[in-house]
């Protein structure tokens, strides 16, 4: 990966990658692996970007695809009960590094959602239009609207208890 590519096309969008990877990982080690994989896939898929959408939309798409695929792989691995090699038996760092308490709680609530719901709400919170979310997720904008309302309700219940 060239330095130019990293500084021009990844660093300015690192926030997007971090926000998404944090939502799909439970510890620092996984987060770093996910982050790295996203960067690598962005580099490898750069030629597939045709400029039909914004680069940031591309970054969202790749970040979500990579996170979802790694999450599924991780689930398969844990199902097979593969114990981790004790290279370092260190205590895993906190999974939620945010300082702001409400943000921390919101992330915890987001992590309780299904994989797809997590992706939709992350895009919504990042102020992506229904159209853009629909394009990224491969769903219809109407469907997205319905889903977002349902997810928001669910999140409020998770954050504040029962919502009527």
């Amino acid at each position: 990966m060239s330095k130019d590519f990293y500084t021009q096309f990844i660093l300015p969008y690192a926030g997007i990658i971090i926000k998404i990877c944090r939502a799909y990982t439970d510890n620092e080690e996984d987060f770093q692996d996910y982050y790295q994989e996203v960067c690598l896939q962005l580099w490898k898929s750069r030629d597939n970007f045709k400029g039909e959408s914004k680069w940031s939309t591309w970054v969202y798409r790749i970040s979500l695809n990579v996170s979802l695929s790694l999450l599924r792989k991780d689930k398969k691995i844990s199902k097979k009960s593969v114990a981790l090699l004790a290279i370092e038996e260190e205590q895993k760092p906190a999974s939620n590094p945010f300082q702001e308490e409400s943000l921390k709680l919101l992330y915890q609530a987001i992590k309780k959602l299904s994989e797809v719901d997590r992706a939709i709400i992350l895009l919504y919170l990042e102020e992506k239009s229904y159209q853009e979310i629909a394009e990224i997720m491969g769903l219809s904008p109407t469907n997205i609207g319905v889903k977002i309302n349902r997810i928001k309700k669910k999140l409020k219940t998770l954050l504040y208890g029962k919502v009527y």
Partner: peptide
Amino acid sequence: IWKEGFESEAKLSSPVISNLYKK
């Protein structure tokens, strides 16, 4: 919560590349 939360987060620092892929 999202907007204000990330506004008050000092910086979203990227991980160091050389020590990744641990898992």
